[in-house]
Write a protein that binds this DNA or RNA. Structure first.
Lengths: 280, 280
DNA sequence: CCGTCCACTTGAACGCGTTCGAAACTATCT
DNA sequence: AGATAGTTTCGAACGCGTTCAAGTGGACGG
């Protein structure tokens, strides 16, 4: 009896905006419609139960989520019990489960928050830089910095994310706004560089998702990284970004055409559909 | 207090990995659980507690593992309770935990068995074929076939494998014999092809591990694949293997030198050490 | 002012993974 | 045979995630 799908009303309050690739604005992106504090946004309403009907309801939900996030950080995920969260928030366990179907779903709060913090931070940091490799390195390093405080229980999160039956997976979840935000950031990483105009349009459309995959690899590396300040992952980023830039740059030349064509086909047919992107 | 490490005597001395005996045709009963080679412990011993001291001990261990694997396949991982395993095996729960530290560790049995079955099956299938792309496709398709029966609860296994704190992870576990076996298979996949003599020796040394990573990507794809008979993954293999072969083939040419050099450095410095391989 | 509906809240109870102290069994020595 | 030490087995008990039947309280219609 999998009630995971049935209990949720199925309606997602976030309506999809225009596809990523169709935007042709080379100038100011103006995608900064995101309020600065995402902690209490309806964006985090996802992953729970039905939509809130009351103000008080939403407050309770936010209270539980905030409390959970604080305790997770203080004690780690496993050692934070649902009873402790409920007690600390001053509600009952059942109430917590009224808003969050499973303990897992409380992690979503972290994921969302980090994604938005990362996007904002990276945009600021890469402003003024036009070299693509540098921009990419900034974007990835920014992620590592934003994620630093959560490294301790990242394992748990990653575990959850790797479960295809869980809607928290960055791969399988359809209409995951956080992923969309991240992909958009990489779109800007590319479009704001001097490399962008030189590229084949078709390839340029795929690249944001590919760069997001690059981030996923970095995340994988980061999760397993046990060096202080995840220095090894940072070094990995410093080494891999110039190479990625070079590969993309070389893709323009004739010798590489066949490979690039193959790769594009593979990505379009097998990778993007899997991660929930429907390229028409 | 994490007693997970302290309860275990420290290092579990794994002597060697031997292929799991081709199990009897029908009766999976514990009737032939005595290894003919005295100094060689079965591969299944890994992941549990201390080494068995008695013959009877080893029998009990095997009985529990066999029972667990059967129930996992019948009911799935989550729905198979430790109590059920113990009851079905005719032992107590405590006894099961005497041999297997956590329920997770019972999964290891699957992993080992599948790895050896795969290696054997792939070797048979690719005998007589010298085209590298074909050999690679055979190796990967063989894996999908061997893994087919476990697809249902593969999610759970993958979840566990993605946890860096778990010793079951194919990445972080040092001295994982199953991984070694798989890498060796890919070594033969390459060395048995007409491509092998043409390659740079240094690159040829890296390739088995890289091909294993290719398999890991296929596994990732497979876990999320919901199509019947994981047809989509099979198609993915058919498409990706010729491309991999072409890339490897092209790596010989001068134009690609710089990229190949970069890639080699990156892999040698960052990928292989992480997956427990120390290339000198 | 009462009844009805419904979002919200409660906490006891259930199932399962895991632990632990003690019993049972085996091997070895006196 | 008895004593001793080590190994294996047992099952009750614990903690935690999760469920569920039973409330509570406010809004609204009559």
């Amino acid at each position: 009896m999998d009630d995971a799908a049935t209990t949720n009303g199925g309606s997602d309050p976030i309506s999809a905006a225009s596809p990523i690739g169709t935007d042709g604005p080379t100038g100011t992106d103006a995608s900064e419609h995101r309020p600065p504090v995402p902690g209490l946004l309806p964006a985090e309403v996802r992953g729970g139960r039905a939509q809130p009907k009351t103000d008080k309801s939403e407050q309770t939900r936010a209270l539980i989520l905030e409390t959970a996030m604080r305790l997770f950080q203080e004690r780690g995920y496993e050692k934070t019990t649902m009873r402790a969260i409920a007690a600390e928030a001053g509600v009952s366990v059942g109430n917590a489960y009224y808003y969050f179907e499973k303990k897992e779903f409380l992690i979503q709060g972290f994921y969302d928050r980090m994604t938005y913090e990362h996007a904002a931070d990276a945009r600021i940091r890469m402003a003024g830089t036009t070299d693509f490799a540098e921009r990419l390195e900034i974007a990835l390093t920014s992620w590592i910095d934003c994620a630093a405080e959560y490294h301790e229980f990242a394992a748990q999160f990653f575990r959850t994310a790797a479960d295809p039956t869980s809607s928290l997976s960055p791969f399988s979840s359809e209409s995951h706004p956080a992923r969309k935000t991240a992909v958009e950031l990489f779109g800007e990483t590319l479009s704001g560089s001097e490399l962008a105009p030189k590229l084949d349009a078709e390839l340029a459309e795929l690249l944001p998702d590919l760069l997001w995959l690059h981030l996923m690899i970095v995340v994988l590396y980061w999760v397993f990284d046990r060096t202080p300040d995840t220095e090894r992952t940072r070094e990995f980023v410093r080494r891999s970004t110039p190479m990625a830039a070079r590969i993309i740059n070389l893709s323009r030349f004739r010798v590489f055409r066949p490979i690039v064509r193959d790769a594009k086909g593979l990505i379009q047919d097998f990778i993007l559909p899997t991660i929930g992107r429907t390229t028409k």
